[in-house]
Write a protein that binds this DNA or RNA. Structure first.
Lengths: 236, 236
DNA sequence: CGGAACCTTTGATTTATATCAAGCAAAACA
DNA sequence: TGTTTTGCTTGATATAAATCAAAGGTTCCG
């Protein structure tokens, strides 16, 4: 009750819909050859490496570009690659056989994809915008990680943080009401973007209403109604 | 739809309520001095260590017993200890200020508690039964982990697995209906127990109905009704 | 430019689950 | 042994959010 109210009150910003922010980041083709020029270097797992280690990692890196709306990897497929997102936004989701789906999260530049490292991908990933990634062969990457204490430690720190966020999301899905879910989603999304792009008056939402609904365990109508209402009450 | 049906059909077992299984595991006072006699050794994170490393870990270990219904650690407190559960069952939960709570999971012998390793505990832990734990000072433990590649690697593997389970639970909370939630909970709980205690005709449920409800994002009445119905339809 | 395909928004109605309200049974207690 | 406490079950009713239905807008493309 108070929680929800607190949450909503903090939201003093405007939310123009779906601006293209794919070009705010590093240009394609650079990461592989020059990690030092990588705009997400300070946020990504590579930040744990010293200059000598970066060189080893660089050798494994393969720069890749994916167009908006294209799949990046599919749940169930052999997990051959892991990667750091260097620009654009991704959607991570798990699907049920009858079409229902849960969006696990959205990735922003600097995020590492491939922490739940089984032999097969446990979830699917799609590009929300045009995207560039710095990819690695999974086995080569984990072999390097095992030889590089700083890297495995950093990966573990990352996984622990993700675990904590996942737990927070469980609270949201299990115990929060629709309006709280939407408000908290907007707040956490803003926080995620601020960490990378810095403060901003506007909040890009590269995902659609259906994506938000599937992330929050709601329907598209409910999400739309609540965002409209929040707007009418000029909380956002 | 099919998913739920499949799930329920597999459940061919009986579910006597709340038997005391705390004594199925290692007796108190042994872990500290003799890891080699520890019954959960093969399941716990310590399994990653060789004999020399075990000795180092043993030096840090402090055996502890907690009575049923007592708190083990509280969300928000400085995170001084991490531990492996050696016998009994734990409940992990996050609370909202207005009393709503989400149970993140239940721990069984062999589980490591302390993966979301911030400076403060992110969730509370309570003993469901009498419990013994093999505890470590958090800082000492992480210093050892950083010096012991096998340990940090094993911790990371553990965290990754937990992350995957957490995502699966998000699907349950976000997109599954009440009956599916209960059926899938019973199945996953059985699986968790089988891994440690082996197959069994009966499934101990050391947690109460309210705990199950708060784990599944339902009310106690809904859980009770569904378990009754599943029993009537002799699926369990 | 015109319309087709997509999203999103808004309204009306339904429903799964929550809430309210008793009972019941086993354990704890005195 | 009877009483209290605690947790579970079952029924009746209410409600938040889903579903059904129908417009608006955009974007895309011929």
């Amino acid at each position: 009750m108070t929680t929800q109210k607190d949450a909503a009150v903090v939201m003093m910003l405007t939310l123009p819909d779906r601006p293209d922010v794919a070009d705010q980041c590093v240009e394609a083709g650079r990461c592989k050859s020059v990690c030092s020029g990588c705009k997400v270097r300070l946020f990504a797992v590579c930040s744990a490496l010293d200059d000598r280690e970066i060189v080893a990692l660089e050798k494994l890196a393969r720069q890749k570009t994916i167009m908006a709306r294209q799949p990046v990897m599919c749940a169930g497929e052999p997990a051959g690659f892991v990667f750091t997102l260097t620009s654009g936004f991704l959607r991570l989701q798990r699907d049920l056989s009858d079409g229902r789906r849960q969006i696990i999260g959205f990735a922003v530049p600097g995020d590492f994809i491939g922490l739940g490292l089984g032999a097969r991908y446990a979830y699917s990933v799609d590009a929300l915008t045009d995207v560039t990634v710095c990819g690695f062969d999974r086995l080569e990457f984990s072999m390097l990680a095992y030889k590089t204490p700083g890297l495995i430690e950093r990966l573990h720190r990352s996984a622990s943080h993700e675990l904590s966020l996942a737990q927070e999301h469980m609270v949201l899905l299990g115990r929060r009401r629709a309006e709280e879910r939407v408000a908290l989603f907007l707040i956490s999304w803003r926080k995620k973007l601020q960490r990378i792009f810095g403060p901003s008056a506007t909040l890009p939402l590269p995902m659609g209403r259906q994506d938000i609904a599937d992330h929050l365990g709601l329907t598209i109508e409910t999400v739309s109604r609540i965002i409209s209402r929040l707007g009418r009450e000029k909380i956002i």
